[in-house]
Write a protein that binds this DNA or RNA. Sequence first.
DNA 1: TGCCTGATGTTCT
DNA 2: GAACATCAGGCAC
Length: 190
Amino acid sequence: MNDTWQWLEDSALEIAPRLLNCRLVRTIDGHQLSGRIVEVEAYDQTDAASHSYKGRTPRTDVMFGPAGHLYVYFTYGMHYCCNVVVGRPGEGAAVLIRALEPLTGLPQMQVNRHGRPESELTNGPAKVCQALAIDRSMNGHELTQAPLLLEQQPALPPSAIVQTTRIGISREQDKPWRFYVRGNAFISKP
DNA sequence: TGCCTGATGTTCT
DNA sequence: GAACATCAGGCAC
């Protein structure tokens, strides 16, 4: 064990805003695709909207593992969404990556996204996965390893972060567990 | 511009 | 058999 992910070993609610401004770097076929995280949502086991709410299952196994791993799930029959596992092993907490601001590899992302305009490459959780070619084969991937890395960046000041209720869920809709970078053009639609 | 709906697979009840 | 942390295209206004 190492202390690489010590900064992720706190509650999802604490970690979610700290993931804003961090970078996600994906390597595909020698291309480097990267983006800055600009929108996230927190989920944990006490939360009825979370996959971990009903306990550990084969599907949610990764969520109950150590922090710093990727939890990828398939939804609505056609989309993948990716989460960063946080907290201590057994907590079942994760932070959903909802949107990125593309930094490098935009042409490759555009290919993955079927020629969508730059502003619509990564402004939604399923779009992020599509642009970075993340699928279920990367479930459980540790984010210190190629081909997908999470790079910590300085935390944003609270004044740069907006906290609101979450999007696209049917339970616990009143929990203000969504965080995004104030004024950023790449967050998903309200 | 904004609402509505179809597509589609995995998971759990 | 229904729910689902979604997206994109079509249609009405």
